[in-house]
């Protein structure tokens, strides 16, 4: 399944939007470096719409209590409900449990069109 979901300029870097690929609701994310990523628009925890969440960064794991190294600004998608963090540049895996991840889609381009398709 394949769908033109928007024009590139319709989603500026650092933002997210909802769209559909056929009947499947997706969340389209654009990281600050301009790359596009698409995932199922449903949190794997209790099913909130990820497109209502926030694109942010996250404090890196550390061995030192009290140390905050905020990184990956614009690459972490946090769920609008309980706030679980997904790393969008790492296949939408949960930071807290990388074995769990959002459903992934392929993103390609034709001229200015952003095309999202289901993975084969």
């Amino acid at each position: 399944m394949k769908e033109v979901v928007c024009k590139k300029e319709e989603l500026s870097p650092g933002n997210i939007m909802s769209a559909n690929v056929g009947p499947i609701p997706i969340v389209l994310c654009r990281t600050p470096d301009g790359e596009f990523y698409a995932f199922t628009n449903k949190c794997v925890h209790q099913g909130a719409a990820m497109s209502e969440g926030v694109l942010c960064g996250a404090p890196a794991p550390t061995d030192t209590p009290g140390e905050y190294n905020y990184e990956k600004e614009g690459e972490i998608l946090r769920c609008p409900w309980h706030g679980i963090e997904y790393d969008i540049k790492n296949e939408g895996r949960m930071l807290v449990d990388p074995n769990r991840k959002l459903g992934n889609f392929n993103v390609s381009f034709e001229a200015d069109n952003v095309i999202v398709s289901t993975k084969q």
Partner: peptide
Amino acid sequence: ILGAAGLDRAD
């Protein structure tokens, strides 16, 4: 409160 939007659901 450290939900994605603080105390409330972000949506």
